[in-house]
Structures are given as structure tokens and as C-alpha cells.
Design a protein around this nucleic acid. Sequence first.
RNA 1: AGGGGCGUCGUCAAGCGGUAAGACACAGGACUUUGGUUCCUGCAUUCGGAGGUUCGAAUCCUCCCGCCCCUGCCA
Length: 566
Amino acid sequence: MSEAGTLQEKPGLDFIRARVKQDVEEGKNNGRVHTRFPPEPNGYLHIGHAKSICLNFGIGAEFNGKCNLRFDDTNPAKESPEFVRSIQEDVRWLGFDWEDRMFFASDYFEKLADFAGELIQKGLAYVDSLSADEIREHRGTLTEPGRESPFRNRTKEENLDLFRRMRAGEFPDGAHVLRAKIDMASPNLLMRDPTLYRIRRIHHHRTGDKWCIYPMYDFTHCLSDAMEGITHSVCTLEFENNRPLYDWVLDNVSAPCHPQQIEFARLNLTRTVLSKRKLIRLVEGGFMSGWDDPRMPTLVGMRRRGYPPRSIRTFCERIGIAKRDSTVDMALLEHCVREDLNAWAPRIMAVQDPIKVTITNWPQGKVDNLECPFMPNDPSAGSRIVPFSGELFIEREDFMEDPPKKFFRLAPGREVRLRYAYFIRCEEVVKDPGTNEITEILCTYDPETRGGDAPDGRKVKATLHWVSAAHALPAEVRLYDSLLTESGPDEPEDFTERLNPDSLKVLTNCRVEPSLKDCQPESLCQFERLGYYCADRMDHEPGARLVFNRTVSLRDTWAKIQKKGE
RNA sequence: AGGGGCGUCGUCAAGCGGUAAGACACAGGACUUUGGUUCCUGCAUUCGGAGGUUCGAAUCCUCCCGCCCCUGCCA
């Protein structure tokens, strides 16, 4: 991606980039641009984080700057090394590189404590010995001012001593907190003497038991930014109320610099959930198989589903950056996935719901090895051999005994093309006498149509995919649909009531062409006429057990026509 | 209710006083050995509402309405 020069030419630079560009032009920070992506390691990254990652790393790259990865690990009760590991893996998978700039807020604990000391020294912070409940009572309400704590006017010396002893572990959890001395009457509740430090005897995943006091977000984040030389601290809208506090801390301490916080609207997507709380509920409640369940909007989930990282980046570019609350249509994400896959995913044939077709005039025992291109529109992509024989499987829904007007696939007496193979004509239908279910379709083929064209120029209205019964490989296919059903006017208070009962369908009787025998986990291809599929990362075993996840279906005009007919 | 934000097509989103970009979705049509892809065409006389300023307003002013965020020793 190249530089601001390119950016100037495209209209509609988002408001954050416009601001960064202006800062660079005005020589602010000597033209330096430095951003950061600051996740708390308390969960897996999801597509909403991807928006932030693309924004922060994107700005870094576009303005010839840098972007750090920083773990905001100030609350050991919720954080763990598993999340630290997964976050790194996901950011890399998405396609971004923090080079040697991976940091942890916990690395700054010592310096942070020094800054706290500075605030106390200046009379701008004090140790409060009120209980949590009492502090809440003193805070006031949205319309009434708060009341000052009786401990608010302790001397510097006393505060310094108390804070030292808090750190030394002389007090039980919750006995005291360190608070900023700002304004208990501020209309912004965050400015009513916010808590800076609390006592918590919890083992920290990186600092172990070294600390029993932990700094709060508002104190930690701005100073971490400043210590890393961040120029633009980009975060989501709900932190807008925190900005005055962000600035207050940096203004009242000898911070190395003063980054600019800028807020943008977080991503919402239709038919899924993006809040960490709800995602945890899905996993811990057993609604999903894990954080990487292909139905999850997590990056590991999308990876397992088969979404190419580039398509996620494209999506993040297309949705734009703004300040208004918005909910992006899932169809746009799926469009980006299809657009990416369409360009390169090799085409192969697989039958999800097989029904047997016997070619009655096919020479006994003959096998015709047909050469089929991986990309019909691009011969340079190569080809593979697909065996054709007298016993085949086609898709059950590609045959109708009594077809409606607009159905132009196989039906009694009708001729269709089998892709890259022959024209076949349905002569007879065999049914189970008990259930009356169709068990087999008897067809004849035209030997003159090998490859799929009739020398006499006659046309067929449909081309079907197929596999040879004797050569095809059994496979499991997992079909996914949206996590939630479409939202209606009456939203349930519990979102799990809106979970889509059809979000997963497992098909165990599928057949795929033999060329897929040794395909590797995570490899992607298009099953012609069906969709894009990804060999499952976890369960697929090359040569042994074939398991495919449907990444996204193809656009299905026929389904639309059917729906209209209903 | 106090404070902080936001309201442009069904959904995102440009626009920054000169007469409503683009994308997705949707609807037609062409092409097609994937009812796929591709390609055409259509899709906001109007910018939450009402006034006002101006030759001219989505853009400026006033008032009103709606939605989101804030009363964790979470981030």
C-alpha cells in the first residue's frame, strides 16, 4: 500500500485518516505516525476487532508509520496466556505484522506506580478507605453531584505512605484504593475522582505474584500510549466519555508525549453477535463447539469456516469508518468472501445428497477418464482427470419427476448435460415399492457428446455436476447458516432464544471426486454449482477422513425463483 | 433528568455553501458446458422535522424529535 499520495487521490478518506493526514501536513509529532492495537487478553478476537486492526495497522502502513500490538493486561482476574497466544496468531493470520513491537501494559507496572507517586506528590491523587459500596454512594447520580470522600484531604505524606503500604501488601483486598482528585461535581461521572489502583491478590499471567495492586484502564491506557510514543490513539465510541480523563492524566504527570485519542463506531453485523459477553456465553453455555466453531464471528471461527483473511480485510475497507452506530449486512461480508474465492478457488465436483443414475447404454465395465479444468475461464490453472462410468451420483434436487415450469434440470424424458462429460436423457425412474421414494434414475447417454457438446448443435438447458459411483470418495460436509435468525420487532431479552436452529447441518453421505483424496486441511475449493468449501482444520484427515465446511454457498438464482413461486 | 456523541437510499457510506459518489441488497435484461462468474439497465427531486440566513443549503443559524454512551475497586 503506498502512501498518503495515493490516498489523496481517492475520494472519501475516512475522518480519522483525514485527521492523521492533516496532522502530518502540519508537522505535528514531526510528521511521525504511530498507532497501536490494544486488546485485553480475555477472549478471542472477532470480526469487530478486525475492523480495528485493519484501521490501526492500515494507518501505520499508509502514513509511513508504525503500529504496535499491546496487551492491555491490567485485570488478571479475566486474562490468560491462552488469549495472548490466540490474539497473536489471529493478528498474523489476518495479515498484519507488529515486527518487534509487542508490548504488555504489565511491563509498565513499575513506571505506572511511579506516575501514581507523582500524582500523589502533586496533591492530585489520594488513598481512599471507603468501601466499594460507599464510593458508589458518594458518586452521586447522572443529575446530582457526588460528595467528597472523608479521606479526600489526607496529606501527601500520608497518601504516599499508604500507597507504599498498599503496594507492599499490608492491607487486605478492597481495603483502600488510589483515586485521582479531580471534581466530585463534574457532570462527567468518570471525572468524579476515578479509581486509579485497587488491591487484588490475584496471580497475574505475566507478573506472577509480584503485585497485589493493579492499575485501572483509564490510568494505564493513556500512559502506555505515551510511553510507546503513540501519536493517534484510536478506540471505539464508548470511550468518548473517557477522553477528558485520558487527557487529564497525561496533562498532570510528566508524560513523554500526549497522544490524541480518536473514537469511531464499532462494528455490528446482522444475524450474529459481536459482544464479548455474548460470545463467552455461547462457548461456555455449550451452544457452540468452541471459539473456533465455524458459526462464530471470531477470527478463528472464520478461519475454520474458510474465509480468506484477505476477504476480511476487503470487507473492513468497504464498510468504512464513521461515528454513527451502524449494523452492516452480513451479505456484504459474504459478498467479499465469494468475490475473493471466485478469483482463485479451484473448481471440483462433489455431490451432497446423492441419487444414483445408471447409464443403461454405457459399455459394461468401461471407465472414461475425462480431463476437467480447475478454472474453466482460465486454462492456465490446469486440470485433473475425473473418471466417468455407467453408475453415477447426481444431486437429488437436480431431478424432479414432475417438474414445475421453470425447472430445467433432469426430469423424465428430458436431456441434460453432465459437466465436462456427456448428454444424458432420463428414460425411467425406479422407486422403492414400499416408500415410493425414488431410488435410481435410468438414463441413456449420447456417445457423440463427449466433453459436453453435441456435434449436431442441439442444446440442453442445464448442466449438472456428478461423480462416478465406483470412484467417488465418501465425505462429510458441514453446512452453515447464520448464527441468529433474522431479527424481528419483538426481540427476546435472552439472545440465545434467537439462535438459528438450522445454523449447522451435517451431511454424512456425500461423495466427492477422487482428486480430493489427499487434499490438505484448510485447502479451499469450489464444489461446482454448490459453493465454496474448506477442508476442516481439525477433523479432516487427508487420505482417510474427508470433512468439508461450506464456507459460503454460491448465489442461487434458482432458489430465489422457487421462493417467489411459493 | 446532567454530560458526551450521532441522525444522507432497505444496509453501509461519500459529501465540508453551487445544485445527492460508490458498495451491498433488490429488480429487469444480455451472455454462459456452474440457474456461478461477467456485462448492461433501473433504484434518494432528496439528506430526522420545522423555521431562518443566502441568488443558491445535506452543508451555516435557531428550535424541536429520535437513537447511542456514562452512576465497575471491567476494558
